[in-house]
Each structure stands twice: as structure tokens, then as C-alpha cells.
Amino acid sequence: MNLQPDSALQASFRGKLPVTGFNSARAVLLERADIGCVLLTAAVDGAAVIVTGSAAAGVDLPSVAGLITRADGRTAMWLSPKSWLIRCDVEEERGLVGRIRNAFPDHLCHATVFTDALCWFELSGPGSLELLTEGSPISLERNGLPVGGAKRTLVAQVAAIVVRERENGWLIAVERSRSRYFANWLSAAAASRE
């Protein structure tokens, strides 16, 4: 027998599907079950592993907060001075972990699949900024979170990673167990604006 995967919202895995219950004329909310993640955590000073880690990951590991680097369909986000989150296609997650573990056999930099720890949402549209500021104190304006930047903050009382992909396009990651609450909150916020 083989187990079958589900997305965090119990939808089809590897999909980009509209979130059930979200209705808005000014924004679109999708669950991005196609996004894989690998968590990198350094056992030593981050600078000591960046070069090797970048080579193994196939994308430069940023050394500055808020910065996202991209290469070959992968992105790397700075989480802390010693940790990074690499986004990749979900098919690639295990291979990426394997390469990094091979590069660090003594686990001076530890890679672990993190895909299922998070649920990724894509929120877009002219009303997307309003919805986000409904639940978040983060600066989404000029110099605050520019296109291509990322921040960790609270949105609707839930810890979230917010990535600004486009002017009115956001990727938001929340911890998996809170994803249903988060989707319901965004849906309620959108509904009350219509």
C-alpha cells in the first residue's frame, strides 16, 4: 500500500488551488502546495558555511536580513544569522537535502526538509495590500518591504513569512497547523470588505 499526500488545507498536493471560502472582487488567494522548502541551520558562524552551502544548494545564501536570492528556480531567504529557508519545487526537496548533507558530513550545516512544516499562500490583486495590513503591523510600503524582499512578522496573530513577489503579489507562509485558521481569517476579512 502507498500513502497519499494532501496539502495543508486538504486539497490536492502539488497544486496551485483557489482557497475554498475566499471570495473577493479585489484579491485572489491560492494555496501553493507546489512549493518545497529546505531549512538550513548552521552549527557554526553563518559566514563559515555560506560558500559551501550556496554551492551545494545551487543558490547563493543571503547574508543580510530581508534579502532573497534566486537561481534556477530556487530562492533562498535569510531567517537568522545562522539559518536560511530555501524554496524549491517540491519534487526537488529530498535531492537538495541530500546534496547539502553530502557537502557537510559533520553537519556543520544541517539541512532538513521543511516543506510540510509550512503552508504557502499566494495573495494577489489590488486589494491584497489592504487585506494584509488588516492583520499585520509590518511595513509594506516604500523602503519597508520592496518587491523581491521578505520579512517575518505576525499576520492575524499567526507568525508568517511574507514575500513580496510583485507590487500586488505576495507569498505568505504560515506554520501548517495554523493554515486553516489563517485562510479563514483572510476569507472573513475579504468578505466583510465587499
Binding site: 531549512l39 541551520t41 548552521a42 552549527a43 557554526v44 545562522k82 539559518s83 553537519h107 556543520l108 550545516c109 544541517h110 532538513t112 526538509v113 521543511f114 516543506t115 510540510d116 512544516a117 509550512l118 506554520e175 501548517r176 497547523s177
Partner: peptide, 13 residues
């Protein structure tokens, strides 16, 4: 100390 701490609670069922 050469140690990394990676919380992965929600990744696993």
C-alpha cells in the same frame, strides 16, 4: 558550541 537547533514539529505527523 558547534550545534544547530532546527524545530521541525509541524513537518511531521
Amino acid at each position: 558550541m558547534r550545534v544547530a537547533v532546527s524545530p521541525v514539529t509541524s513537518h511531521w505527523a
